[in-house]
Amino acid sequence: MENTKLDLDNYRSLLKEYLLTKNETALYQAEQFSKLSMQHNISPEEIIHVHIEALKELYPDLTQEVNDSLNFLLEAMISYGLAYQEFQTLREKQSELQSEISVAASMQQTLLSTVKPEIKGLDIGAISVPANQMSGDYYHFVTDKEDDTLGIAIADVIGKGIPAALAMSMIKYSMDSFPENQRNPSAILENLNRVVERNVDPSMFITMFYGLYNPGNETFSYASAGHEPGFYYHGDQDEFEEIEARGLVLGATDQATYRQFERKIKKNDCIILLTDGVTECRIGDRFIERDEILQVIKKYIQLPAQEAVEQVYKHFERLQEFQFRDDFTLIIIRKEV
């Protein structure tokens, strides 16, 4: 295809060709001309100006009314052209913001990254998928080399996007700074509650479940700050049980206390932790019920833990019209011996 040239001569010959032949090719070239004009930031009124000039050269005897009306059109297009320029500027700004958010998102990932630990006798699977670029969900594994305990935190910041992500980083660093001897779940939640209450916006709060597994006595101790209840899977009976651990969300008042629970873990039992991104999603107009989630988990529970969490996620992702309104996080821990 011959290059469309952005000049008066070219436009004039296109116009002449069209007026004489009503040829489709000329129309097509006019379209190319306008696309090229946009690429070169040529305003609409400039094109009209070119049109008027070309028309005058082709038909020097235009009536005064036609002449005036063309000038009128030219004036009318000026503010349209300005709006278009503004739109272009906004588009550029938007892409700048977009790239800044990407930088923030990858920084968040670095800050909050947690290593899924390899622990003898435990099979651990974890998946966390943000609904937007910045995640408000968080999970963290804390291993202690001295006594082999494993701490597991799963949390959901309410409030989305960047503020939620910033709050999550604060939580992580507070947890890291707690002294080693305060690693029991109720103490951790009580301390975090005070941090959150003092430091975040009144309408923002965090739900968190914290568990500590001690392989020495095969005991799992846990406490919850208003977090969506997880499930306990009894391997020998192939049955699920809800992990009940009531407790107030972090940040609602400064005086909350958290009751700590304990249970022995048997071989082949699983602890399943999730965030409400899993239960707050819906298909079309229908909500997904907790039972339904449980059915899906049940279907895959026999798989290795990492495969199981991925299959559960894929199940929901596959559903038509399924929309994640929130971040999705699921952790499965199985005791293998």
Binding site: G159, K160, P202, S203, F205, V249, D326
Partner: peptide
């Protein structure tokens, strides 16, 4: 339908 953002409004 209410999600957790609504809870945040009631907390504040």
């Amino acid at each position: 339908y209410m999600d957790s953002t609504g809870l945040g409004v009631f907390i504040s």
